[in-house]
Each structure stands twice: as C-alpha cells, then as structure tokens.
Design a protein around this nucleic acid. Structure first.
Ligand SMILES: Nc1ccn([C@H]2C[C@H](O)[C@@H](COP(=O)(O)OP(=O)(O)OP(=O)(O)O)O2)c(=O)n1
Ligand SMILES: [Mg+2]
Ligand SMILES: [Mg+2]
Length: 975
DNA sequence: ATCCTCCCCTAC
DNA sequence: TAAGGTAGGGGAGGAT
C-alpha cells in the first residue's frame, strides 16, 4: 500500500522539480510550437514535454485548436485522419533533431503520414447574420405552431460557430478523407455487404414523411421504443433520475408525520446511554475538532447545538442498497432457483442459439480493437471481458448475478459466455423492468416512513441521514437497521443491506462489508483499522484509470528506474488535487470525505443517444433520418427540460461516425463497430429561441448544416443527438439548495491563488489533528449585489460596502451599469475567503489554493429600497419565517484540506441568532473574527419547499422585485 | 484572476 | 443475437 504513495510522491516531486526547472528557461527554439503527443513515442511524452517547457514551446495535454503539431511515432490511419490538418502530424525525431541542431527544422521532412493534405480548404459559408435571420423568419411564418424549445440546433448550424469550433470536420480533412475512402470500392462494398448481413434495422423510405410534410418522431419509432424498453442501462439511468425527483416530491408533500418513527418508539428498547454511545461511536470526532466546533457554535445558541452535538456527534449516515437487485426481484417468482447461481441476462445462454459461430471471432476482434482505440496498446495487456471466450459464447451482459454466482467469480457486467465458463450451471432469468420499479418505490416509501433526509443514488440505493431519526426514536443504529431491513424484505420480497458511518463514504464502505442481507456499523474508532483493508480502487469514483497507476506493482517497484516509471506513467490520467485528496484517504487511513448527504440539486443535464443498432439504408434518406431523430430527441429533451427549468444552457451536438478504416462492424452492438464521436458545443446564454420543429425549413437547415457544411458523407454517419447541460434551477424552482456546487448562480468552482490574501497561518496541533488556523482577514468578507437577467445569467455585480448610503438598489444598478430597459432581478451575495491547506511536508499535495466560502440569498428583494433596508428585510423575513431555512450545514476544514461536515436544525431560537451573525460577519464585526479563528464556514441550505409564492410573500411580491422592460432578448436575437 | 469550454472518467 | 444509457464531477488550458 505504501508503494503507490511512494510512486505518487515521486511523481509529484518530479512535477515540482519540472516547475522549478521551467523557471530557468534556456534556448527558445520551440517558441510558437504547441505539441500534443499521441500514443507511444520515443522519447516519451514526458520527455517531449520537458523539452518543450525548457525551450519555449508549449505542451498540450489534449489536442486543441491551437495545437500546432501532433507528435506520433506510429498511428493507425484512422487516427491520422481524425487529427485535424492544422496540427501537422509529425514524428518525434523532429523535436529531437531540432534540439540537436539548435534550431527549428522544417517539420515537413518529419511528417508521419505523407497523405496529409497541405493547405487548408476554404469553405464558403454564408454570413452568420443572414443565416440566423432567415431561420427566424421561417419560424415565424408558422406562428401558432411553435415549439417553445430552447433549442440549440440553429446554433450548430451557424457557420461562424463551425468555423471557430469544428476544427476536425470543418477544415475538410475528415470530410474529404471520408469521401476518398468511400470511393475506394473495397471499402464501400465491404460496408454495403456488412449492412446486408447485419442485424441492423433498415430504414425504408416509406417510413419517412416527405420533408415538406410535418414529420413525426424518429425514423423508426418501433426500433427506438423497442431498444429503450430493452435497455437496462437506459432503465437504471431513467429510474435513478426519477427517484431523485421522487424524494423531492415526497418532501414537498410531507406533513411532518413519520409513521415509522412511531413504530420505532413503540419498540424502544435501549437506554439513552446505549443510544448515545451507539451513535457517538459512529460519528464522534477527535476531541480537538469537537472542541473547535463548540467554540463556533456555543455563542450562537447553546441548547440547540449541544443537543445536536451530544458527545461530539455530528451525524450518522446510513447507506442502503438492495442485494443483487435484479436477481432478487426475479427470484420472487422463481423460488425454485433460490440458492442457485442465477444471473439476469437477455440471452438464455444456449450456445446453439448462434447461427454463425464464425462471426464470433470477428466480434472479438472488433471488441479488442475498440478497447485498443480507447486505451491504447495497454489494452492488450489488460484483462478483458472477452478473455477465454470461444465461438459458442454469448456476449449478452450479466446485469446482476446472485451471491452464489459471485462465489464462482461472476460479476455484474460480465458477458454471459464468460460467466458460464466460470460456472457452467449458471441459471439465467429475464429482465422485468416494471417489477424493478415497483420494488424501488417500495424501498423508497419504506425509508420515507422514517425520514426524508434521503439522497437517492439509484433505483436500488440511497443515503439516509439518521442522526435526528435515531435520537427521536431512541434506538441504536443496528436496531433501526434490523427493523428497516425487515420491513423492506417483507414488503418487497427482496433483501437489502445497510451500512452506517460518520459520513457517506464510510457508510457506503460499511454496506459493502454488510452484504449480502446484513448490516454493519463502522465506528469511528474502527475507521483507521478499517481503512487499512481498503484499496485505492475500492473507493467510489476510483475506477481503473485512476487506480491503475497506484495499483500496478511494477510501477511501484520500479520507482527508482526513470525509464520504466515515465513509460508506465505516460498513459496515466492526471490526478488533480481533489482526486488526490480522495485517494489520500487510503494512505492516510482516514476517511473524512466531504461527501454531502444533501446534494439536493436539480437535474442539470439531459441527453439521449443510442449507440446501438441504428443505421441508415441509403444516403438519400439520411437527412430525413437525422432530422427526425433529432426532433425525437429534441422533444424528449424538451419534455424533460420543462420539468427541470433551464436557466443557463449549454447544448452539445453529438455526432457518431463510423470509423472509415474499419468497415466490418460489431454485430453485438448492432453495427456500431468502431466509431468516432464528436461533440460540438454551443452556449445559449443569450438566446432563447423558438424553433418550429415541424417545418420544412427545419429539415433544410439540418440538411445544409450538418451534411453539407460538415462535409460529412452520410454513409458514415451513425447517429446524432442533442445533449443539454448546465441547466440551473430558477428562483421559483421547488426544493433547491442554492448553495450546491455548480448550482444556480453560484459558480461551480472558484479559484484564487494563495498569494492573493495576507493570511496568517496560525497552526494549531491538537491531539495529532491539524486544524486550520486563523484564515480570514476581516476585509476579506464581502457583500455584493448580484444583478441577474431573467434567465439567471449574471449581468453585473456591486460591492455593497463600496456603495453610497441611502440610494435605492434600483438607482444604483441603473446608474452604474444596466440599461434602463433591461430586465433584471438581483440578489444579495455574501462571501468570504478561506485557505485550503494541503499537506506540504510530505510533498504529495503541494497545490495551494484558496477557495471561497459562500453565503447567498438568492431571493427577490425590493429594488426601491436601500441596501440597508434590504438587508434588514432579509433578516427580518428570515427571522419571522425561519421555517424557510430549516437546516444549517457547516463545514470544518482541517489543516490537510479535509473537511468535516455537519448540520443542525434551525429553529425559532436559532434563526434570530444566525442571521444577524451572518450579517455581522459580512459587516466585519467581532463575530467574524471569532468564527474565522477556527476556520469554519457556513452553508445555509434551503431544504424545505421554497415555492415562488412563499418567497414572494416574504419578500414583497414579484411586482416590486423585478423591473419591467422587454427589449433585450429581441435585440439579441437579431444578430 | 476568473470564467468557460471541452474533454475524460465513473457509477448504477 | 442483443438491446454499451446517462448524469455529474474533475482537470487542463484557452478566453475574457
Ligand atoms: N454493470 C451493471 C451494474 C448494475 N446493473 C443493474 C443491475 C443491478 O441489480 C442494479 C443495481 O446495481 P448494484 O451495483 O447495486 O448491484 P446489485 O444490486 O446487483 O448487487 P449488490 O448486492 O452488490 O448491490 O443495477 C447493471 O445493469 N449493470
Ligand atoms: Mg444493489
Ligand atoms: Mg446499487
């Protein structure tokens, strides 16, 4: 275990010395050169990076628009084609020879592929202005039938956007090459041949409406619905989102009565002392931290905090997960299979079911190539899912397998063929998605009888904050677990396992120990020992890509050997400070993950893309197919987006293109052999557009834009889809957490450098635990007014303390910045800085960054009032209506940058304290110093339903709050 | 200095 | 036959 950390440390030290070396810049022969290294090279990517850094060049981790040269020693043709032409693909000798020569040599002698086109093709785009206004005009001619889709399509078709962003295709490289390839008869015939023999659903012309007519949904509605109804991944994804929503709905409808609690109370059997020790065993923090917390807390409201923090207890988190979920559900109707190895699959595992076993080998080849494309040469050495499979083996995936099957080594996600090799008498049962959903509802409903402090994870899994519940019911964690699991099994016929811990990560790890059909409490005192048995790869969110460099023994043993090290690290992904901290928990034997149980954000992205079986029969149809499929997706998106309320939007067009060099395609994946995927992004901040999805113009636009301007040969287009992201809840959204990372008007991350602030690091060492010290100088607390557009996009901001007294907010805003005719709303925004210390003595996590603690009141205020009046009204309103804010979540940051989080109820007693406290904070009062001296910062979390109406009634109603006007959008649209 | 964009990665 | 969908976090680096 120490090995990988040694390796990690070595790596970071190298990084640091590189940085130092960079300071002394030598010759600058590579000035203006920006390289990206693709695949294996000699010298290695790491060495090339060094050369670049030391000689004036730039090294890119990923290929980007400004990459001037791609360095590669050996690339498949398809990859060369994929690289855009401006980045000349050259051999690494160009760099080394130039270095040796002391000057930049002509790269053309070092081109990897002589076929590379030289000049940049000029594309003749119509002007953006005309393009958009044409589209708008066409849309308006169908008034009354508009789909109010906040739709990206036209922006993808906006030629200047392509020019700027679509390097790969727009530069004509791939387009031309694809075309060239298609003229190669062998390829074309191969492709057609394949199409005939494959199981692709061919799209017939009669399925397609003429472009002039209003078209319906997807080209082949049957295929789409059939696929979706059989796709397990689609189901679990959809159900996951649905249950997150469901919890929110339960919470809004909650009457405050929890029948489960009464049942628990009735059977209360343990004494208060037992209870207390049961809970504190889980969540007691080291003395130093408990003490520190009390320092913060006690001045605010002694009684509340003392109750919540009895014995230093912060919280008890429970994780619940159904045991082999799909199998358990399936076994309810098949009791005779209980105790046997069982798996849920589509195929029945009958080898004779394959008609042509000869294609199996081809299938495996294809699979291997995919892996290679994804992982590079390393794929060959890595164990893969097709190892040991033969002609008769089924490649149907095992969605879930029973614990008897797991004893044979079978795992979820394996191919059935491989599973049968491990366990020939494995029994397979079919999917039953409806039943899964019903059981899921029962599971959630059961837990919801006890508490609604639930964070849904998936259809079979959730986190539950039990702190309050256990205290109220007076039961110990294990007793609650017994009752709850009994009820779940009774109601669903399936078993669940639960784990308890002081935070979500520990709870999750505890569940793993508890399975199957068990429960496990991970006491604080046990954590260190427990973590000894945890591998890096056992941590959630650490998959093979992140774990690999740490898990690989060879790497660890060869730390001393430069060559081997750099080679084995060459392919590693970068581990940043956050991932590093996450991993550190294993080495440090600590688990103080800042996982929040209350990530109560709304859905912020939505997308749909099938990478299976969807193909086109002939070129003439592809346009219609594209269009209709896109319409399908758009509607699907629209439907979902309506329910999540989009504020800021980023839309992405995904285009799947089959690899031109590999005409033979995978049968398993329904002709999706080896594909390339392109993502084209567009930002819709300023543009809410109505798109008439049924007009002929719509199709024409897609036709022109996608196929002509992308110069994409239809033969190779597999699929296209839309993806909407960065959707943010609007003020009137229900049940939202305004402080969630990346949510709403708050930026996702805020970077400031350590050096910016004159911070005194007065380190306390207490009981072996480093506590972050005095962090904040008083002047670093800031109160701002944020001015937002109606779409929640920030227009401008003002520092309140720097504003003149006595002016109304409205006047300040209009005077300073915004046009009088601009529609806006505003909120008050309070924040302060703190230091994010990382362990530096060991050298592991040397990045020092400050982050920002944020407190935000994103509510409608009175624009006619002065700043002071508004602050006052916020305070009063909150005090009067304290139910609005029901939970206070706080975070304590330790010296190592780890965080402890906790939360307490806000009650009438506390609210009057906490609000002035915050403002005092912002106003640089004594309280600020007191609180900051132990480096805590607070998050307010609006957990309770917070409807627009209730907000308005608190803060004066919408009419007072929003200045009217209307012209901004319009003028933006007519660009 | 911070924001924005694009990408990779992970989980169920 | 088989049905490899999706949301969300992290990281790098250019844009502003
Ligand atoms: N690769 C995977 C993983 C999971 N699932 C589905 C089937 C599982 O039953 C369900 C829940 O996933 P879990 O990770 O909770 O696994 P199980 O519930 O099957 O087993 P466990 O007892 O380990 O929780 O999601 C799937 O289809 N494909
Ligand atoms: Mg499970
Ligand atoms: Mg699960």
């Amino acid at each position: 275990m120490g090995g990988y950390m040694a390796a990690k440390k070595y790596k970071l030290e190298q990084q640091f010395s590189e940085d130092a070396a960079q300071e002394a810049i030598r010759g600058k022969i590579f000035t203006g050169v920006a390289i990206f290294v693709n695949g294996y090279t000699r010298p290695t990517a790491e060495e090339l990076k060094q050369i670049m850094l030391q000689h004036g060049g730039t090294y890119h981790q990923y290929k980007s628009q400004v990459t001037t040269h791609v360095i590669a020693s050996n690339l498949p043709d398809s990859k060369v084609r994929q690289l855009k032409e401006q980045s000349k693909v050259v051999r690494p000798e160009w760099v080394t020879d130039s270095l040796a020569a002391g000057r930049l040599l002509d790269y053309r002698k070092y081109l990897l592929c002589p076929l590379q086109p030289r000049g940049q093709a000029q594309l003749n785009f119509p002007s953006a202005r005309r393009y958009v206004s044409d589209f708008t005009a066409a849309s308006h001619s169908h008034s009354g039938e508009f789909e109010v889709v906040q739709n990206a399509i036209q922006y993808f078709l906006w030629p200047t956007y392509f020019l700027q962003h679509f390097g790969v295709l727009q530069s004509d490289t791939v387009g031309k090459l694809l075309k060239k390839r298609s003229q190669n008869t062998e390829i074309v015939y191969g492709w057609k041949e394949h199409l005939k023999s494959s199981s692709v659903i061919p799209i017939k012309s009669h399925m397609i409406q003429p472009a002039q007519e209003p078209a319906r949904l997807a080209s082949d509605d049957n295929f789409l619905s059939e696929f979706y109804s059989n796709s397990r991944l689609h189901h679990i994804s959809t159900m996951g989102a649905a249950f997150k929503q469901y919890v929110g709905r339960l919470r809004s409808a909650n009457s405050g009565h929890f029948p489960g609690l009464d049942r628990l109370r009735a059977r209360k059997s343990c004494s208060d002392d037992d209870l207390l020790s049961g809970c504190t065993a889980i969540c007691q923090y080291p003395d130093a931290i408990s003490k520190a917390l009390k320092i913060v807390v006690l001045p605010v409201s002694r009684s509340i905090w003392v109750r919540s923090m009895a014995g230093g207890a912060i919280g008890v988190v429970m994780h619940v997960d159904m045991d082999c979920f799909f199998v358990s559900v399936g076994l309810r109707a098949r009791p005779h299979l209980r105790g046997l190895p069982v798996a849920v699959t589509h195929a029945r595992g009958n080898p004779s079911a394959h008609s042509s076993s000869s294609s199996r080998k081809q299938e495996y080849d294809c699979y291997r190539q995919r892996l290679e494309k994804k992982l590079g040469e390393a794929a060959a050495a890595r164990p893969s899912r097709i190892d040991g499979l033969d002609e008769g083996s089924s490649m149907s995936e095992v969605a879930s397998c029973s614990y008897e099957a797991r004893q044979a080594g079978i795992k979820n996600g394996m191919f059935l063929g491989a599973a049968l090799k491990l366990c020939p008498n494995l029994r397979t049962i079919p999917y039953d998605f409806e039943a899964y959903q019903q059981v899921s509802y029962s599971l959630y409903d059961t837990v919801a009888e006890y508490t609604l402090d639930i964070e849904a994870v998936s259809c079979d899994e959730m986190f539950v904050d039990c702190t309050e519940l256990l205290h109220q019911a007076g039961v110990a964690p294990l007793e609650f677990a017994t009752v709850l699991r009994g009820e779940i099994e009774e109601r669903t016929g399936c078993t669940a396992s639960t784990g308890f811990g002081g935070n979500a990560l520990l709870a999750r790890l505890a569940t793993r120990r508890a399975k199957p059909d068990g429960q496990f409490v991970l006491a604080t005192s046990e954590v260190e020992r427990f973590m000894e048995d945890i591998e890096v790869s056992d941590l959630p969110d650490v998959g093979h890509r992140i774990a690999n460099p740490f898990a690989c023994d060879i790497t660890c043993q060869t730390v001393q050997n430069n060559d081997v090290l750099s080679q084995s690290y060459e392919e590693d992904i970068k581990v940043g400070p956050l991932t590093g901290e996450h991993i550190y928990q294993v080495e440090g034997r600590v688990c103080d993950s800042a996982f929040s149980t209350y990530n109560e954000t709304m859905q912020r992205a939505s997308s749909a893309l099938i990478r299976f079986g969807l193909r086109f029969e002939d070129n003439s149809l592809v346009v219609h197919l594209d269009a209709s499929y896109m319409v399908y997706d758009t509607i699907k998106l629209q439907h979902r987006v309506k329910s999540v309320r989009s504020g800021r939007r980023v839309v992405c067009l995904q285009v799947v293109v089959i690899s031109p060099s590999i005409p033979s395609s995978s049968k398993k994946y329904g002709a999706y052999g080896i594909c390339y995927e392109f993502h084209y992004f567009s930002n819709l901040q300023q543009h809410s557009v109505k798109v008439h999805t049924k007009s002929a113009t719509f199709y024409q636009t897609i036709n022109d834009g996608l196929l002509r301007e992308l110069n994409l040969l239809p033969d190779f287009l597999m699929n296209i889809a839309l993806k909407m992201g960065t959707l943010s809840p609007s003020v009137e959204g229900k049940s939202f957490n305004i402080l969630s990372k990346g949510c709403g008007i708050l930026p996702k991350t805020l970077d400031c450098t350590y050096a910016t602030f004159g911070i005194i690091a007065d380190v306390m060492h207490t009981g072996g635990m480093h506590i972050a010290p005095v962090l904040v100088e008083t002047e670093h607390a800031v109160v701002k007014i944020l001015v937002l557009g109606t779409d929640n996009i920030r227009l401008t901001e003002f520092d309140i303390l720097a504003l003149p007294e006595g002016h109304s907010i409205e006047r300040i805003i209009t005077q300073h910045h915004c046009q009088r005719d601009t529609n806006f709303k505003f909120s008050i925004y309070i924040y302060w800085y703190f230091v994010d210390f990382f362990e530096t003595s060991s050298g592991y996590f040397g990045h020092r960054k400050t982050k920002m603690g944020v407190f935000c009141l994103s509510t409608c205020l009175n624009p006619g009032g002065t700043v002071a009046e508004n602050l006052c009204s916020v305070w009063l309103s909150l005090s009067l209506k304290y139910e609005l804010v029901t939970k206070l979540q706080f975070t304590l940051m330790t010296f190592t940058g780890n965080m402890f989080t906790g939360k307490v109820d806000l009650c009438s007693l506390l609210a009057p304290y906490i609000v002035p406290c915050i403002f005092a904070f912002a106003k640089v009062s004594v309280v600020l110093k007191a609180m900051c001296s132990i480096s805590a910062f607070f998050h307010f979390v609006l957990l309770k339903t917070c409807s627009n109406r209730s907000l308005n009634s608190f803060f004066g109603g919408p009419d007072n709050n929003t200045l009217s006007y209307e012209t901004r959008k319009k003028s933006d649209n007519s660009i």
